[in-house]
């Protein structure tokens, strides 16, 4: 069995690439960046708080992705960015184990899971 960096085997890398074609395997093989790029639309439950500061006014609460329900327990950072003229709100959240990068497109009103950083990566 060929075992690469981060404990990935050749088969698991190929599987990863087939499931998440956007993922840059070179980065994983070189042990640099554990990010798995997903870029998929997801179902989302969001909490909108009446009284909160800007950074926690809207909080992703729960996501359904690949048949799994993932509940977020921690907000890392929220920051705005732009894609052309479209305003995008980036939410970096965690379910206590893995980190997820979510993007809310304020024009199209869509939620997208951009990437996952597995918690065990080091």
């Amino acid at each position: 069995m060929v075992t690469g960096a981060n404990g990935f085997t050749l088969i698991s890398l190929l599987h990863l690439k087939s499931v998440y074609p956007d993922t840059n395997l070179t980065r994983i093989i070189l042990r640099m960046d554990p990010t798995i790029e997903v870029n998929e639309r997801v179902d989302m439950v969001v909490l909108y708080k009446k009284h909160a500061d800007m950074s926690t006014l809207a909080l992703p609460y729960k996501m359904r992705w690949k048949g799994r329900e993932i509940t977020f327990t921690q907000l890392g950072l929220r920051h705005p960015t732009a894609k052309g003229k479209r305003m995008i709100h980036v939410f970096d959240v965690s379910d206590g184990i893995d980190d997820y990068r979510l993007e809310f497109d304020a024009e199209r009103l869509t939620w997208q899971l951009i990437a996952v950083i597995p918690g065990g990566s080091s």
């Binding site: 890392g76 970096d92 965690s94 184990i97 980190d99 990068r101 950083i117 990566s121 080091s122």
Partner: peptide, 23 residues
């Protein structure tokens, strides 16, 4: 630190940022 703030799983770990990942 901004990356560790955004990604709780990276906190307490040796990490860094670079402009473009390459060898």
């Amino acid at each position: 630190t901004a990356e560790q703030q955004a990604h709780p799983s990276l906190r307490g770990k040796p990490m860094g940022v670079t402009n473009r990942l390459s060898k």
